[in-house]
Simulated assay, not measured.
Amino acid sequence: MTLTAVIGLGTMGSRIAHSISAGGHEVRGFDPSEGAREKASDSGITVFDTAEEALQGADLAIISVPRPEHVLASARGPLSTARGAVVADMSTIDPGSAQEAAGILAKHDVTYVDAPVLGRPDKIGSWTLPTGGHEPAAALVRSVLEGTVAKRVVRVGDVGAGQAVKVLNNLMFGAINAITAEVLTTCEAAGVDPEVFVDTIADSGAATVSNLFREIAPKMIAQDFEPAFALELLAKDNKLAIDLARSVGTPTHLAEIIDRVNTGAMDQGLADRDTGAVQELYRSQSGASQ
């Protein structure tokens, strides 16, 4: 049994804590939000009032927070007290921040690996975690998370490589999301029933069809924008992918278009809605809104 601390008990972190606990490991948790701590405590997770208390004696520390600056603040603060532990960062951040966090923690005898999530929150247990870091640390992460929160924990390279895989994957997500909204809005404006289009294409065997299209297209048609994955989070990840591409000197032609679509939809007040809400931007700019 591995003593595991989970720092960040939001949408992802709370699921992670429960799944690890159900797998037979002792789990401690912390979140800066009192409401999140109370909710986790009510559901059976042992929760502490400070991150330092939750981390005391932990073999593995998992962090799941929204943004790179939160990871770095944690590395400079409470995570640095977890001497001898492995930190698995399951947040989605940029590779450079992951490498910076690793450098900070190494000075305190704490080993960092980036292990962001490939998969929807409700698909926990079948996630893939692309992991960047030394193999012995990745092996510890694999021993706890594979079979509990993830189907596969795959070491993809050194620190930062996991985050590169994640943000580039989410750039493809953004592309499919935007083009689906564009196609369905064009169908509507051209007098083709979008539902007929999706029913015809989804199981046609056409090379253009993906599982993501099958998932998001019906939600767009129904204007069901309850967030499975909020647009503001996708937009953040897509910007990280653009930053990565620019840092290594590769072009960002399509990525910049995707960013404009995301930003335009958020400017309409849709940041906290599902990613499919970008269709509202298309509809507002087309004959479909008339």
Rank of each mutant, 00 (worst) to 15 (best):
Leu129Gly: 03
Ala98Lys: 02
Ala230Val: 05
Phe30Ile: 15
Glu146Lys: 10
Ala207Gln: 15
Gly132Pro: 11
Ile45Trp: 00
Ala139Pro: 05
Glu195Leu: 06
Ala88His: 02
Leu140Met: 14
Ile20Ala: 03
Thr111Ala: 13
Gly287Phe: 05
Ser74Phe: 06
Gly119Asp: 10
Val198Ala: 09
Thr148Gln: 07
Ala217Pro: 00
Ala235Arg: 15
Gly133Lys: 15
Ser41Ile: 13
Phe213Ile: 11
Gln268Tyr: 09
Asp259Ala: 12
Val196Ala: 09
Gln268Leu: 15
Ala101Pro: 02
Ser21Gly: 15
Ile257Thr: 01
Val196Asn: 05
Lys239Met: 05
Arg152Pro: 00
Ile16Phe: 06
Ala98His: 01
Gly57Cys: 04
Pro68Glu: 14
Val65Phe: 08
Leu231His: 05
Ala22Glu: 06
Ala255Gln: 01
Met172Cys: 11
Gln290Trp: 04
Ala189His: 01
Thr4Val: 14
Met172Asn: 10
Thr128Gln: 03
Ser41Val: 15
Ser204Leu: 12
Ala245Gln: 11
Pro68Val: 08
Thr11Met: 14
Lys123Trp: 07
Ile63Phe: 04
Gln163Asp: 04
Gly133Arg: 06
Thr200Ala: 08
Ser41His: 15
Asn170Lys: 10
Glu280Ala: 09
Glu38Ile: 11
Ile258Cys: 07
Ala88Ile: 04
Thr180Trp: 02
Arg76Tyr: 08
Ala40Lys: 01
Leu233Asn: 13
Thr46Pro: 07
Tyr282Leu: 12
Ala217Asp: 07
Leu240Glu: 11
His25Asp: 08
Val154Met: 03
Gln99Gly: 06
Gly133Pro: 06
Gly147Trp: 08
Glu100Arg: 15
Arg155Val: 06
Val71Gly: 13
Ala255Ile: 01
Gly57Tyr: 02
Ser247Ala: 13
Glu280Ser: 10
Glu232Ile: 11
Pro251Gln: 02
Asp109Gly: 07
Val165Ile: 05
Leu145Glu: 04
Ala75Trp: 03
Val149Asn: 07
Phe229Cys: 08
Val144Gly: 09
His25Ile: 09
Ala245Pro: 00
Ile63Arg: 12
His134Thr: 14
Phe30Val: 13
